[in-house]
Amino acid sequence: MSEALDVLLRCLVVLGAFLTMPLLVGQMEHKAMAHMQARVGPMAAGGFHGWAQLVADGVKFAQKESITPAAADRRVFELAPAVALVPYLVAMVAIPLGPFFGQGVLIGQDLDLGLFFVLAAMSVGVLGTLMGGLGSGNKYSYLGGMRVAAQLMSYELPMVLAAASAAMLAGTLSLVGIADAFEPWWLVVQLPGLVVFFVAGLAELQRPPFDAPLADAELVMGPLTEYGGMRFAMFLLAEYAGIVVLAALTTVLFLGGWAGPWAEQLGWAWTLLKIVGVSFLVIWARVAYPRLREDQVNVLAWKVLVPLALAQVTLTTVVVVW
C-alpha cells in the first residue's frame, strides 16, 4: 500500500512541477526580456511587479471562443495542442531533481534508460506543431509546418550525438547515474557537446533565434496561425514546458545536476538553480540574437553542429579509452 502511495505522491509532485515551472519561466521571460529592452513589462496585474499577469492571460485564454476553421482537417487540428503538450509532462517523470534532505533522489521514476526516454518523449512533442501546420488548412501554417519539419530533421542528429557523448563519459544511460558520475573537469572536456546540445535544443523548441517556422513578419504565426483561446494557450504552455525540460536535461547531462556544496541535503535546490539559470540563457538568446534565415538554420545544423558533435564524440571516446 505504501508503495502505491509513494508512486501517487511522486506523480502529484511531477504534475505540480509541470504546472508551476513553465509559468515561472513565462514570468521570467516577461520580466527579463522587458528589462533587457529597457522597459518595465507588465506591472499592473496583482500589484507587486505584475506577478499575476500570467494568471490574467490564462483567464483571458479560457474565455475566448474556440474556433476551428472551415478548411481545417478537424480532428488533426483539434488534437495537435494535446500532442504538443503531453509528451513534456511524460518527459518530466524521468528527470531527477537530486537528493532531498538526505531522503534519496527526488525523481518521478528512475529509469534504466532515462536519457533515451526523455529524448524520445521530446521528439514526439514536436509532432504537435507539425500537425497544427498540416491540419489548419492555411497556407501560412502549411509553410510554417514545412519549415518545422526541415528544422527538426536537421537538429535531431546533433542533439542526440551530444547527449550520447555525455552518456559515454558517464558509462550509463540513467539520468541519475550520469549526474552522479559528474566530475568538474567534464565541464571543459564536454564544452562543445554542451554548446551543441543547448543550441540544437533551442532549434528543436523553435525558440528564437530559431523561430523561422513562426516568423511573424513572413508567416503570421506559422503553424499556430489559426489557433486561439485554450488551444493556443496549450501550445504556449508546451513551449515553456519544453524550455524547462531542455534546461533540466542540459543541467543533468552537462552541468552536474545536483553537484555543489551540501549536495546531500540541498541537491534539489542546486538542480533547480541550474535549471533556472539555463532557462534564463534561453530567454537571453531570444533577446540577443536576430532570427536566422531558413537556409542559415540548415547550414548551422549540418556544417557546424553535426561536425562539432562528431568531434565531441571522438574526443569523448579518446578520454574514456585512455
Binding site: S123, V124, V126, L127, L134, A149, L152, M153
Partner: peptide
C-alpha cells in the same frame, strides 16, 4: 516517430 515520420510528412 521523431525522424522517419517527420521525413515522410
Amino acid at each position: 516517430v521523431g525522424s522517419v515520420v517527420v521525413l515522410v510528412i
